[in-house]
């Protein structure tokens, strides 16, 4: 349940903030949400990765009708279908590493409080 709430939070915050802020706004969002959620490392990476990957993929499919996918495919010498996935992976990776970082920092904090 907590995982789902964090995942949806990152999705919504990324989608809303990206309308007014640079694309990398997903980095502080992922870090903050995971840090506050006090997740373990694997989930710290996985949840933001999946959230941003999904959000970007949906946003791409809402905007594009295969035209830019084909252009980017030609430009990057990749199959057309792969370019939305590649784009979403880029967002996901950045989110994942910042989420992981948030998780590792929050873990340290928890250990210190408990200890």
């Amino acid at each position: 349940m907590k995982n789902s709430i964090l995942l949806v939070s990152i999705c919504i915050l990324t989608a809303v903030c990206s309308l007014v802020a640079p694309w990398w706004v997903l980095a502080p969002i992922s870090f903050s949400v995971i840090y506050l959620g006090k997740m373990k490392s694997a989930a710290g990476f996985g949840i933001p990765f999946l959230a941003v990957f999904g959000t970007w993929l949906i946003a791409i499919y809402l905007n594009d009708h295969g035209v830019v996918a084909a252009l980017m495919g030609k430009l990057l010498l990749l199959p057309n279908w792969s370019t939305p996935i590649l784009s979403a992976c880029i967002g996901g990776l950045v989110a994942g590493f910042f989420g992981l970082s948030g998780a590792l920092f929050s873990y340290r904090k928890k250990s210190w409080v408990n200890g």
Binding site: S18, W23, W56, A59, N63, D64, V67, S87, I90, G91
Partner: peptide, 13 residues
Amino acid sequence: LNPYTGAWQNSEN
């Protein structure tokens, strides 16, 4: 490649 300000916004139908 971001979907909010990147090339995907140039898709025209």
